[in-house]
Deep mutational scan, measured.
Amino acid sequence: NRRVIAMPSVRKYAREKGVDIRLVQGTGKNGRVLKEDIDAFLAGGAKP
């Protein structure tokens, strides 16, 4: 169970979209999950 780095607003956005943030690959600094990562996940998967 890895620790997810994300701003509270991004965590809320993921919850609102029904996304398990632990499944999203973060592309920000130090692997931080960004809102754009949530959108990319919803569009068909995590960014490479």
Rank of each mutant, 00 (worst) to 15 (best):
G26M: 02
A46D: 09
K17N: 12
N1M: 11
G26Q: 06
K35M: 07
R3D: 10
M7K: 02
V10P: 05
K35A: 09
L42Y: 07
L34K: 09
V19F: 12
R11W: 09
N30K: 10
A6D: 14
K35W: 11
K47N: 04
L34W: 08
A43E: 09
L34I: 05
K12Q: 15
R32M: 10
A46L: 11
T27S: 11
R22V: 06
G28K: 04
K17L: 13
G44A: 12
A6L: 08
P8F: 04
V24P: 02
P8E: 15
R2C: 08
R22D: 03
A6C: 07
Q25S: 11
R2S: 08
I5V: 12
S9V: 15
V24W: 03
G44I: 05
K35G: 06
G28F: 01
N1W: 00
Y13E: 09
V10F: 01
K35I: 12
N1R: 04
L42H: 13
L34F: 12
R22A: 14
V10W: 01
A46I: 15
G26L: 01
R15K: 15
L34D: 02
R2V: 01
R3Y: 06
V33D: 00
D20K: 05
L42K: 09
K12L: 14
V19S: 02
I21V: 09
R32D: 15
K17Y: 10
R22Y: 08
R2G: 05
G31S: 09
I21K: 02
A43W: 05
L34Y: 04
A46S: 10
G44R: 12
D20G: 04
E16M: 00
R3K: 04
G26V: 04
N1A: 00
N1Y: 01
L23G: 11
A6R: 05
D37K: 00
G31H: 01
K17D: 02
E16I: 03
A6S: 13
D39C: 07
T27Q: 08
D39Y: 01
M7F: 06
A6G: 11
I38K: 00
E16S: 06
R3N: 14
P8K: 11
D39F: 01
K17T: 08
P8A: 14
G28R: 03
A14W: 01
I5A: 06
A40T: 13
L34C: 04
F41W: 12
D20E: 11
Y13L: 12
V4L: 09
F41I: 15
G44Q: 13
K47I: 07
L34N: 09
K17C: 08
R11G: 10
Y13S: 03
R15D: 10
N1C: 07
E36R: 10
A46H: 02
V24D: 00
R2T: 07
Q25M: 10
K47F: 04
N30T: 03
R22H: 13
G18M: 10
G26Y: 00
V10D: 04
I38L: 08
A14R: 02
G18H: 06
Q25A: 13
L34V: 10
R11N: 04
I38Y: 01
K17S: 10
P8Q: 05
Y13H: 12
A14V: 00
Q25T: 10
G28P: 01
I21R: 02
K29I: 03
V24Y: 00
K47H: 12
T27P: 00
G45H: 06
P8S: 11
R15P: 01
Y13C: 07
R15Y: 12
A40K: 13
P48S: 06
V33G: 00
L34E: 13
R2L: 08
G18Q: 11
V33F: 01
N30L: 13
V10I: 14
R3L: 09
S9W: 13
K47E: 11
N1G: 02
A40L: 13
K17M: 05
I21N: 03
S9Y: 13
N30W: 08
A6Y: 07
V10G: 01
K35H: 14
L23T: 12
L42M: 14
L34G: 13
V10Y: 02
V24H: 06
D39P: 01
G44P: 15
K47S: 13
R15T: 14
V10L: 10
D37Q: 00
E36I: 15
K29F: 14
R11L: 15
L34M: 12
R11D: 06
E36V: 08
K29A: 10
I38N: 00
P48W: 05
I21S: 06
A40Q: 01
K47D: 07
T27N: 13
E36Y: 10
R3E: 11
L23P: 05
K12V: 10
I5D: 14
D20Y: 03
G44W: 08
D37I: 00
P48G: 04
N30C: 03
L23A: 12
L23M: 04
V24A: 07
G45V: 12
V4H: 05
E36G: 12
K12S: 13
P8V: 14
A43R: 10
A46G: 11
V4A: 07
G31A: 09
L42T: 10
D20V: 04
E36A: 11
L34T: 03
R11F: 13
D20N: 07
A14Q: 03
R22E: 15
V24T: 04
K12M: 08
G18N: 06
I21C: 03
A40G: 14
Q25E: 12
A6H: 08
V24E: 00
L42C: 13
R3P: 05
V19W: 00
R32T: 10
I5Y: 02
G45N: 08
P8L: 13
V33W: 01
A14E: 02
P8T: 11
D37N: 05
G26W: 04
G26T: 05
V10S: 03
G26P: 15
K35N: 02
V33H: 15
R11V: 15
V4F: 14
I38T: 03
R32G: 11
L42R: 07
A14C: 03
G26E: 02
I38V: 11
V10N: 03
A43Y: 07
A43L: 12
D37W: 00
D37M: 00
E16V: 06
L42G: 09
G45A: 14
R11C: 15
P8H: 14
N30D: 13
K29M: 03
A40M: 10
D39Q: 06
V4S: 11
V24L: 11
K47C: 05
R3A: 06
L42A: 07
T27E: 08
P8Y: 13
P8G: 14
P48A: 15
G26F: 02
L42E: 07
G45P: 10
K12P: 02
Q25N: 05
R15A: 12
Y13Q: 05
Y13A: 05
N30I: 01
N30F: 04
G31K: 04
V4D: 15
E16D: 15
T27F: 05
